[in-house]
Design a protein around this nucleic acid. Sequence first.
DNA 1: ATTCAAATGTGTATTTTTAACACATTATTA
DNA 2: TAATAATGTGTTAAAAATACACATTTGAAT
Lengths: 234, 234
Amino acid sequence: MKQISRFSHFGELSDKDYFRIALSVDCVIFGFEDGELKVLVIKCNIKEYKGLWSLLGDLVRPDEDLDSASYRILKERTGLDDVYLEQVQTFGQVGRHPAGRVITTAYFSLVNIKDHQLKLSDNELHWHPVNEIAEMAFDHMEILKGCLERLREKVIDHPVVFNLLPKKFSLRELQSLYEAILNIKLDRRNFRKKFFMMDWLVDLEELEEDVPHRPGKLYKFNQAKFGRKTKKIS
Amino acid sequence: MKQISRFSHFGELSDKDYFRIALSVDCVIFGFEDGELKVLVIKCNIKEYKGLWSLLGDLVRPDEDLDSASYRILKERTGLDDVYLEQVQTFGQVGRHPAGRVITTAYFSLVNIKDHQLKLSDNELHWHPVNEIAEMAFDHMEILKGCLERLREKVIDHPVVFNLLPKKFSLRELQSLYEAILNIKLDRRNFRKKFFMMDWLVDLEELEEDVPHRPGKLYKFNQAKFGRKTKKIS
DNA sequence: ATTCAAATGTGTATTTTTAACACATTATTA
DNA sequence: TAATAATGTGTTAAAAATACACATTTGAAT
């Protein structure tokens, strides 16, 4: 690797030291199930945090973009390659990783849990209700909180929650999802009115099935009104 | 540095390769002068981008937090150590730096230009109107745009613009600042009403001096209403 | 078959927020 | 002294958000 001439403040440190920093990405993969917002976590296998949950992450390869690294992790872990992904924040506290200086860039992504039972055979991997996690390995609790906060801001005026739902869904499911994310109760009539106004939904003229009560109408996301919000892995 | 056991997907790459990534921070330092939003830039000295403006940045030291690195750059360049600083985004495209794999975390900060003529003797360093920059070195144009966008979102409901103004300012200066940031015209009466409502201002019972027209009242930011928004360098 | 329970579907009134808009006053400058 | 230019001030209209109740439909239980 060539010398980096742009930086003139090397001071007493040798060039080499500047490359003794590793970079990782961590994915906060959100899902929605049983009326709860969940996050995909894995049992931590390093001794300092044995048994605690951690996020899914990996080191960034030297020839790999940050975004590509997150897509790779998602693909490896969920089998999905058409997901919503957004960079949130980079965590670089000196002591954050016991193995050395590892700086991590956090992403959150939104997937439909039902789309991939497959890779979940790995029994160290599981969907955990976001509200029921109190402790995690590393600084992953802070990362999770940062991503959850970002998600909350995002859903208020961007049509991203549809990534968490199946293709067809009822208004009840949609409202319940918003309530789970924002952790508040919403007025059903105002909620419906608002969504019809915004024209984010397409009425499928179908009804729910197998529900233990009067079935509601099914809708899909009005994708045509927006450009594609998810990107394919390159 | 110990082996990093958390990451199991090293594949065909040796551990050493994972540390051939350098990390930098770049600061988008905003100021406000002559009714314009400006950014502190420096002439680029590497051959690929000779003569173009670039942001102020430096490599992160192995024993240095990301935030500390930005504070250090700010302190070195402006002499200020009590500034607003916010992390925005990390840019990690493989080819973004001609010297090798350098990933950079972008911060924006808000300073009062008048507070430091000092270090500006360096004539390669200068305040450039944000609206008049069309091209920059590296991917710095993209970084600038990202930070400007974040700033615009931020000022809408957070009291951060005061960091760009002197201690005492008139409502006209304040409005002109918002107009410069958001690139829109605002209604003077509604603007005043809104600020008095929000109780963000303290009337200093003083008048402007040396203005070529009827002097306006001076105000200061109602700091007591909020916690300190800036942090001291540690 | 009838009843009960539970969720769907629908509209209006109120409050709050935002936006539009004009004129008298004060200080400087010519 | 007159002209200029910016300050200072309230009201009205429109839009958005909130609060709120009842009839209907289906499945489940008796």
